[in-house]
Design a protein around this nucleic acid. Sequence first.
DNA 1: TCCATAGTTCGACAATCATCGAATTATAGA
DNA 2: TCTATAATTCGATGATTGTCGAACTATGGA
Lengths: 114, 114
Amino acid sequence: MESEPVIRALSALAQEHRLALFRLLVQAGPEGLAAGAIAGALGVPASSLSHHLTQLTNAGLIVQRRESRSLIYSADYRAMNALVGFLMENCCGGGACAPDTACEPITDEERKSA
Amino acid sequence: MESEPVIRALSALAQEHRLALFRLLVQAGPEGLAAGAIAGALGVPASSLSHHLTQLTNAGLIVQRRESRSLIYSADYRAMNALVGFLMENCCGGGACAPDTACEPITDEERKSA
DNA sequence: TCCATAGTTCGACAATCATCGAATTATAGA
DNA sequence: TCTATAATTCGATGATTGTCGAACTATGGA
């Protein structure tokens, strides 16, 4: 994987409203949400939201589909997973560097106790 | 976890040189690398690099230690893992949304075939 | 066709960010 | 103490980004 699309994805997520938006869609699941519903949930003006939706779409993190007059957005889980994989890639030079937990996503247990 | 530190971490990584720098440290393992060695590896002027090192440090993604005249930087794996956990949090509303692979990091097999 | 609804594009402005040389601070050795 | 090495801080500059109202485009129903 090239690093340029990764930068785009990270830049897209590195913004308060877009991070909230992406997480909203991640939690909404494959059904997604209409642009208007998102604007309401986040309290962001329509034109600003549209700008953010474009950024996330260009980054490949979300996808758009039309349903009558509404445009429905949903998270692209594969893109998110690819991003995570890229960050973890060749952790510690590919060798044994530390307990497994150090190179894998934290477990639910760890997350709750944090 | 609050979203503000997550934004800081994502912003820190959303930059060509810092992403390369962070990945360099991830691959270098716990031993880390001296600032000068990093500057050489990335081909970035010392003052620019220092700026980036500060950003990554403030984001909690890397840590610094002194070893004689050199300052050694190394990746903080826990921070990276916490970041990943945050992005995955409550995926699909916490319910069964899709095959497991959709909410977990991709496997090595998938990564290679991409 | 005409109107209402759903979103996007445009344009301008303020704010933040990356860059890099010069000056500065910190450590170690002679 | 004096010098050399290692790295950071300072300061100025150009570029990118977030914001939002107004104007525009697209769809669907009467």
